[in-house]
């Protein structure tokens, strides 16, 4: 279940916005300008069901997102959705993976404490016996050049 963000969890000065998320959810987002840099050598891995609800996370996901495993499992992946990410990017993601093809892109993710971290994300549909049963997403350290390009591009996509 996806809850509004709690001011008590936020570290530093924050702004507030309400986002419309996939599945008709609305969520109150509290976000700061504090970046956590992606650690060298790690991969963040998660799987979701067909509806984008998280079914598996690895330790790096827990560490970088700031959530506990219990808070992440059975929760929509959009718990990471940052207001600076244009909806067009996620539409492209879903349109791509729904055709059975891998999607790759650079994503600014929201942390539980209101901060953010940039990733290079790859998402594939998990196909069993010809049917999509869920999705696997792997995030890795992005190049700073690509992140700087996205910082310029994404505000133009709203």
């Amino acid at each position: 279940m996806l809850h509004d963000m709690n001011p008590e969890d936020i570290v530093g000065d924050f702004q507030e916005v309400t986002l419309d998320l996939y599945g008709g959810f609305k969520r109150r987002i509290l976000y700061t300008e504090i970046e956590t840099s992606y650690p060298d050598g790690k991969l963040i891995v998660s799987t979701t069901d067909k509806e984008g609800v998280i079914t598996h996370v690895n330790q790096s996901f827990i560490e970088m997102s700031g959530f506990t495993e219990d808070e992440l499992i059975d929760t929509p992946h959009s718990i990471l959705r940052h207001p600076d990410m244009p909806p067009a990017a996620f539409k492209d993601l879903w349109d791509t993976v729904n055709t059975g093809v891998k999607w790759q892109g650079f994503v600014k993710n929201l942390r539980k404490d209101g901060g953010y971290y940039w990733v290079k994300a790859t998402v594939i549909p998990n196909v069993r016996d010809g049917e999509v049963v869920g999705y696997t997403s792997v995030r890795r350290k992005p190049s700073r050049t690509k992140v700087e390009e996205c910082i310029k591009l994404y505000p133009t996509l709203f």
Partner: peptide, 12 residues
């Protein structure tokens, strides 16, 4: 299965 999905994600 989890490892294969991960490898697929990284290599496909």
């Amino acid at each position: 299965e989890f490892m294969i999905d991960l490898m697929d994600t990284l290599t496909m």
